[in-house]
Design a protein around this nucleic acid. Structure first.
Lengths: 352, 352
DNA sequence: CTGAAAGCGCTTACAG
DNA sequence: CTGAAAGCGCTTACAG
């Protein structure tokens, strides 16, 4: 069993002044060592470093910043911490920033809270603010105006289409093109759309991709797609996907391929079809979106579209860091990430 | 489409001095308004607040703190951001802290990095440091010694058993007692343990729970449990659970109930048994641990043990806040959270 | 290497 | 309400 010895409070050293006295050097000299300035004897450096070890003295970051040092802190606003792909992006980005010695100040942005959060970030003089997820566009636009006024750079990850915003987002249309191309190559000509309804921008983008891909294959969207999205409040995507699958399965002439809004709905649909006695992929094919871990947890595995989290985070880190210590650009950066289709057992040749 | 107007940099207001000049008041007066001090005309207050709105001026948090204000920041060390139960605890805790106007400074603690991270937290003069997850005990014990020396309170969530540490952790033994009681009540007398091997403290705790519960039912641990955990490096818990299930299923006389290390292994095992032609729960029962979303994503759903995230976070927040502005206690707080068994379709009466 | 001094952006008595 | 002053913990010339 490991033991943490309680207190034994050393003679409290709270400032460089205390510390300098303790080491027996001038405050100036200590400061020089701390900042790695030249012209110091090796012995002095050692002496100071040993004393830092022994006392655990850490200079006050607040005083440092006040003297003009960057805070080396990036503010990150999360839509929430419960959406796995968003958290994976956060994790990857945080790691990259940390490697460059930037700390992350992370806040969750409940609707209506953005003003308070951005104020806090500004008062903390963060070097930049990153938003990850999807937000209320008008609210974020206002925040960007404030950040611009303060000369604080920003970046939005995921939420595309806010004018003037620096953005890194997934090419969702392209992801759907890959799905359709894959399914068409397997001989599918009739497609069930699972929960791809509503006016959400991300869904619209994806439907545009479906449209475009079908057109390229000389297929007519209206004739060959069948959309089901009857519920508007859902407690569980999984249950909803299952319910939608059961509805389709009960129809005499149903599509051979199903495209789900996300992996949860795809997994639910897969179970639904199997429960209805249909074999996947012999009777019907199913695809998801996001390529979460759960895609590997079904039998067969769920074909899905990967968001390329690592590339997204690298692009984001590059964009953030390139904006630091630069004047604000008038023309925003807009970067698009190409998703990747991950083919698993849930998609196969169309039944004839 | 929403629009964020680029810059139009207002006359840059960077300090209370600039701001006071801009409003036409004394710095002292502005400071009073900002701090809600008494003895000010309503009109003056309004004037200042209107100007804050208009200019977006935010006082420098670094200068504030230097004048003695608490930083109102809690440092949170995460084992990683990819373990769903840990992230759920983080999300819940962060929300509770925010409600009390504490910001969260979040860092991921890669092995060997704890010293650097805690140093950073100390230099940021955080009010307390929280660790969420499981760590290298010796490393954390050292960090606690440092924190104690600085008079900074701490709390560890999940990792129990570090001497002198304030801890909130799950009563894993009790969770297993609930599982065994449930299975025994269904008539099960033979148990397969899936991946519950190794020396990890959490696993040992859980096995102790199994032991105790079986003893209470007059069952002998060695006679009635069969443990499989042959792989030591696994890429996917799901695949591993599936593999373990197939091994058991191939044996002539196999247990009727299976207890998995976690939900992923439980879900994999469930699929494995089904693939081997066994029905769940008619032929075999399966349980998981953690009660993640994926438990609802199988057919039947997976019986599992819920970690009671909300209660854990509330307890943690209470313990952190109660330590602030108090002298460090010699006797550590140790709180235990009672898990809750969530019964789903994967457990049923034992086949006779 | 030392020491005294100025200044970062605030707050807080203090005298008017 | 104003204004001048001190001080929080640092860094950075500057003179020795």
């Amino acid at each position: 069993m490991s033991k943490a010895s309680p207190s034994t409070p050393l003679p409290q050293i709270r400032s460089t002044a205390d510390f300098a006295r303790h080491v027996g050097l001038a405050r100036t000299t200590v400061s020089r060592v701390l900042n790695g300035q030249p012209g110091l004897k090796a012995k002095t450096i050692e002496r100071v470093q040993a004393a830092m070890e022994a006392t655990g003295f850490t200079p006050n970051a607040y005083a440092l910043h006040l003297k003009g040092k960057r805070t080396a802190t990036i503010g990150i606003c999360m839509e929430d911490l419960l959406t796995p792909p968003a958290v994976r992006k956060l994790a990857a980005l945080q790691r990259l920033l940390r490697e460059r010695n930037y700390a992350s100040l992370i806040e969750v942005l409940d609707p209506g809270e953005s003003r308070r959060v951005v104020r806090h970030f500004l008062s903390m003089r963060v070097d930049a603010v990153v938003f990850i997820g999807h937000f209320i566009p008008e609210e974020i636009a206002q925040r960007l105006t404030e950040l611009n006024a303060h000369g604080t750079p920003h970046l939005i990850i995921d939420h595309a289409g806010i004018e003037g915003a620096n953005t890194v987002s997934l090419d969702r249309a392209s992801g759907m093109v890959a799905v359709i191309d894959h399914l068409v190559s397997l001989g599918h000509k009739n497609f069930g759309l699972l929960a791809l309804g509503g006016t959400a921008r991300t869904v619209q983008e994806r439907l545009q991709g479906v449209h475009a891909a079908l057109a390229r294959h000389q297929l007519d969207f209206d004739a060959c797609t069948h959309s089901r999205d009857h519920l508007h409040v859902r407690t569980s995507d999984f249950e909803y996907g299952r319910a939608l699958a059961l509805i389709f399965a009960a129809e005499k002439k149903h599509p051979t391929a199903y495209i789900a809004r996300n992996d949860e709905i795809g997994v639910g649909a897969l179970h639904g079809f199997q429960a209805a006695g249909l074999r996947v992929p012999q009777d019907v094919s199913v695809t998801g979106f996001n390529n979460q871990d759960i895609c590997a947890m079904t039998t067969p595995g769920l074909t899905s579209v990967d968001q390329q989290v690592a590339i997204t985070a690298e692009t984001a880190a590059e964009l953030i860091l390139s904006q630091l210590n630069q004047p604000l650009r008038r023309k925003p950066w807009v970067r698009t990430i190409e998703p990747q289709l991950i083919i698993r057992g849930s998609t196969g040749p169309a039944r004839r």
